[in-house]
């Protein structure tokens, strides 16, 4: 963590040699209150539908991203300096892989679906056995 090789040896002598994030009541309360607000509004929007479906979808996706960041900062105590920056580096790497995978899968599968030759339908196997009638 330090350029000076002796710094690590000195740190070892202390009683608390393991670096741990410091948590505070303030962090947890702020994180909890923000999370409650960021959870309640999406549920309210979908349950009462005051807006159009498209706008509601965009808003709740935005709220989810904000809430994930809130959890990272206030509950997981992420800082750019944690673990000498390696926590953040691995997080950014993971986010990049996840975005490529999600966007790529959706893109490829969407094009496969739209460019697929129409399949001949066999009405007997397609419609028999539906459970929609049993579902409330």
């Amino acid at each position: 963590m330090s350029r000076d090789p002796h710094a690590a040896a000195h740190a070892h002598e202390g009683p608390h040699e393991i670096e741990m994030p410091h948590a505070s009541m303030r962090d947890y309360v702020i994180g909890f209150v923000l999370s409650v607000i960021l959870t309640a509004i999406p549920f309210w929007l979908v349950m009462t539908m005051p807006l159009s479906a498209g706008a509601t979808g965009a808003i709740i996706m935005g709220f989810a991203v904000v809430q994930i960041v809130v959890h990272m900062i206030f509950f997981l105590h992420m800082t750019p300096k944690a673990e000498g920056g390696w926590s953040l580096t691995s997080l950014i790497f993971t986010v990049i892989v996840v975005v490529i995978m999600l966007a790529g899968s959706l893109w490829v599968m969407h094009h496969l679906n739209t460019n697929m030759m129409p399949m001949p339908h066999e009405p007997t196997s397609q419609t028999v056995g539906t459970t929609t009638g049993q579902v409330p």
């Binding site: 999406p42 549920f43 979908v46 479906a53 979808g57 709740i60 994930i68 959890h71």
Partner: peptide, 18 residues
Amino acid sequence: LDVVWIGVFTFVYLMGVL
């Protein structure tokens, strides 16, 4: 796990109902 659940309730349940 709570972070993953944010994705589940938003993407699966809320978007699913929409």
